[in-house]
Amino acid sequence: MTGTILAVITVNRERIAGGAPIFIEPTHEKMQQTAFTLEKILDAMVHEVSADTLIVVRHK
């Protein structure tokens, strides 16, 4: 199964850089909210990389 990272959502701006769109949120709750919205918009799955970073991945 190949996946593409469509977006990165984080509360820790220092640790993130790269090709996918990055959404920086002030709090954990805001991060979850944005991830939820993006999941519904993109029809892709949200995964947790670390406690302060989520990625939206399209599988297949």
Binding site: Q32, A35, F36, E39, M45, V46, H47, E48, L54, I55
Partner: peptide, 8 residues
């Protein structure tokens, strides 16, 4: 699997 969304 890894489920990132608390709602899910």
């Amino acid at each position: 699997m890894n489920v990132g969304l608390e709602d899910a």
